[in-house]
Design a binder for these strands. Structure first.
Length: 735
DNA sequence: GAGCACTGC
């Protein structure tokens, strides 16, 4: 059953008056579209601080009356939203069905309005319970809650609040809670039936993250079992509705059109084999033939982006000299870029210039750049694909899906009409898969499986998976968990497994922490684990600075030089935390220090937050830990102490070890495959390790070990874990 | 001699 709420065709979303008036001539008397004040949203976790600090200030100033005034002002704008205009019809469906799938395009207002409609209804019928709205990203949850609180006329955290890691803005009065997928899963672990909620809204379900998929599975088992009264709304931006609908017993699908501008599509006549060259040519052509407006180019990875930026910097001047066209100013954008460089992308450009941003997929969902009128799409992206049998991740460049291509094109139509140039043929576009392969189908599911075991699921292969990751994946995860001591031979969760499931870490790292608590080096290990669980802590220096930065990092880590990256992280942490943290002006001192070593300032702040959280959890979980574990400690160069720490890591990563060969290459202990130390490692140039242990094994051009430590071969026998062959047999027979 | 993107009581 499907209901199309608006009559107009879906291809033309824009009403006449919304359409931009045509510019007189592209380069004479240019009428540039006015930039909206600040549309930039970046996934900066500091932003959560800003929001909460701001709201704290507001608490003191803002009166009840001014909140209500503001809300009634906003109501006028709300009423123009497509979702609002179909409020009654949407609510009729929601009231009369246990599950509703709602397809709302960008700008439909679904994420802000639908939850409020439900809230009104809850108030109206005097029903108990509250509403949970999940988001894949933290910033989204915070921003939505902030906005909706204003619209609702309340202080943030009052009736409307949010809950994300490190930041909880809810009170006992909160009835509408925006939260990350991960947070709702945590709540599920604590409160199996989600009794607190009468409605759960899954937003951005089309993104199909592992965590969203898991929530869908849990919700289905809840409504089929102990919570038949729980109302579920699945919201998605793309037309992948059938799968959601079928999963929930053919739930009705509602379509709400969005408010976005027309984007005209262009394709190549013949395919290209040099994508960087094609992107450059396309940008130059746009610059010569189209009106002013910025260009956003999607390329698969950093390598292509850096190449494109270099070429563009060289030719921009000549292109602009030749003809009276704007000067092209190229910018790179990817996650591992230092934040200062990332910020440049968002600053408006002045003068007769055209900003060209070469970006990875980060600009597809996580980041919005204002002023973009043209999109150039390589049709490629990089994905991490987990190989269960090999226990390694491969990084592959693959064609995108049609949904992804549409999403990329849509980036040209955020503020006005735009154009999208796809650097592939239309016939090839039609051959692309409709949707990208969901993440769970290409991921390591050790962590999800542990979560399910903790929840008490025995028959994992027949659980209510929204997307079953497959027998291989589940069996490998079970074996892995058995080897980590999280499951017993019958596949039941152990006490150790319970502890692992409660720590906000991947199971391997949880297992390392538990070991550390047993042998009395918890504090040091927590510091290292905190560093490991923050992405992009050590940024990639530009090629010119590379050697210098590496040299500086090496000179600071005396023990790290010999023992590798884990110990180096601890040494860097110690400098940041103990030495730089003491001074009067510790903040600017720390910032300068990070800058010189090409370390993310934001990253280290997150390390501290993770560390604080882990210390609290550990205190609660390991009540019997020995004294001395509690106090924080700097690491020295005592080899006994370092060995003890590395052996803790070995209990979690015993599989990730390799032995040094006479020709100075390494071969993995488990499969005998050749493996190389990643060039980003401290030990890259060190040719004298008898063995290595690594926390990550990635295959790109060849097999690379990342986060590498030196180990002695004798340690491999010292560290006792559950046997491999027996485990596999027992687990598969007991299922 | 190299680095898709997110996220956790």
């Amino acid at each position: 059953m499907a209901a199309n709420i608006n009559n107009s065709t879906s291809s033309n979303y824009v009403s006449k008056k919304q359409k931009l008036r045509k510019n007189v001539h592209p380069f004479m008397g240019v009428t540039r579209t006015k930039r909206t004040s600040k549309v930039i949203r970046f996934n900066d976790s500091n932003e959560s601080d800003l929001v909460s600090e701001q709201s704290l200030k507001e608490k003191n100033v803002v009166t009840y009356k001014s909140l209500k005034n503001r809300a009634s002002d906003l109501l006028k704008m709300r009423k123009t939203l497509p979702v609002y205009q179909n409020k009654r019809e949407i609510m009729t469906y929601i009231e009369s069905n246990p599950v509703v799938v709602l397809i709302g395009e960008t700008g439909s207002g679904k994420s802000t309005q639908i939850p409020q409609f439900i809230l009104e209804q809850l108030y109206g019928t005097k029903k108990h319970g509250s509403i949970a709205v999940t988001q894949p990203r933290r910033v989204a949850a915070i921003n939505l809650a902030t906005r909706v609180a204003q619209e609702h006329g309340c202080k943030l955290g009052d009736q409307v609040g949010y809950s994300v890691r490190f930041d909880n803005m809810t009170t006992a009065r909160t009835r509408l809670k925006y939260l990350t997928d991960g947070m709702l899963l945590r709540e599920l672990m604590m409160n199996r039936e989600l009794k607190e909620y009468s409605v759960v809204v899954i937003d951005e379900a089309h993104e199909r993250t592992v965590l969203t998929d898991l929530i869908l599975g849990f919700l289905k088992s809840l409504i089929q079992g102990p919570r038949p009264d729980l109302k579920i709304i699945v919201m998605s931006a793309t037309l992948q509705a059938e799968k959601f609908s079928e999963f929930f017993n053919n739930a009705p699908i509602l379509f709400v059109e969005g408010r976005k501008f027309d984007v005209k599509q262009y394709y190549l006549k013949a395919p290209t084999d040099d994508i960087v060259d094609a992107v450059i040519r396309c940008c130059v052509q746009i610059n010569q033939c189209e009106q002013l407006g910025d260009i956003l180019c999607f390329l698969p990875g950093q390598e292509e982006i850096d190449k494109a930026v270099t070429i563009m910097e060289k030719i921009a001047k000549y292109v602009a000299d030749e003809t009276p066209v704007p000067l092209i100013v190229p910018y790179p954008l990817y996650a591992a870029l230092p934040p200062i460089q990332q910020a440049l992308v968002f600053a408006p450009i002045k003068g007769f210039k055209r900003k060209v941003v070469f970006s990875t997929n980060i600009a597809e969902t996580s980041v919005t750049i204002s002023g973009v009128k043209f999109v150039v799409d390589s049709g490629l992206r990089k994905v991490k694909v987990w190989r269960h049998q090999l226990g390694l991740a491969t990084l592959l460049t693959v064609p995108i899906s049609q949904a992804s291509a549409m999403q990329r094109s849509g980036r040209a139509g955020r503020e006005s009409e735009g154009k999208s140039f796809r650097l592939y043929c239309e016939s090839d576009y039609l051959k692309l898969p409709k949707q990208s392969e969901p993440e769970i189908a290409r991921s390591d599911v050790t962590s999800p499986v542990l979560m399910l075991k903790r929840y008490g699921i025995n028959d994992l292969l027949n659980w209510t998976w929204f997307e079953n990751p497959g027998k291989d994946a589940v069996l490998m995860a079970l074996q892995e968990l058995y080897e980590l001591g999280a499951l017993n031979t019958r596949g039941k969760i152990t006490k150790r497994g319970e502890q692992m499931a409660l720590l906000p870490l991947q199971p391997h790292l949880s297992s390392v922490l538990i070991k550390a608590s047993e042998v009395g080096c918890l504090s040091q290990v927590i510091d290292i684990v905190s560093c490991l669980s923050v992405e992009n802590l050590l940024l990639n220096p530009s090629p010119e600075e590379r050697d210098e930065v590496n040299e500086r990092r090496l000179s600071l880590s005396n023990a790290g030089k010999r023992y590798g990256d884990l110990i180096m992280l601890k040494e860097l942490f110690d400098i940041y935390f103990y030495e730089l943290g003491k001074s009067q002006d510790s903040n600017s001192e720390r910032n300068d220090w990070c800058k010189g070593l090409c370390i993310s300032v934001r990253g280290f702040k997150n390390v501290i937050r993770v560390r604080d959280q882990l210390r609290v959890y550990c205190k609660r979980l390991f009540s019997s830990i020995s004294e001395g574990n509690e106090e924080s400690k700097k690491i020295g160069e005592d080899s006994e102490e370092i060995s003890k720490i590395l052996k803790c890591f070995l209990t979690g990563f015993i599989k990730n070890t390799a032995i040094g060969m006479p020709d100075r290459s390494y071969r993995t202990v488990s499969t005998g495959e050749p493996i190389s130390i990643h060039p980003s490692s401290m030990l890259f140039l060190n040719k004298s390790c008898p063995g290595i242990m690594y926390t990550e094994y990635v295959f790109t051009t060849k097999g690379y070990a990342r986060n590498v430590s030196r180990i002695e071969l004798s340690w491999l026998q010292e560290v006792v874990t559950n046997g491999t062959a027996v485990a596999k047999q027992k687990i598969s027979s007991s299922k």
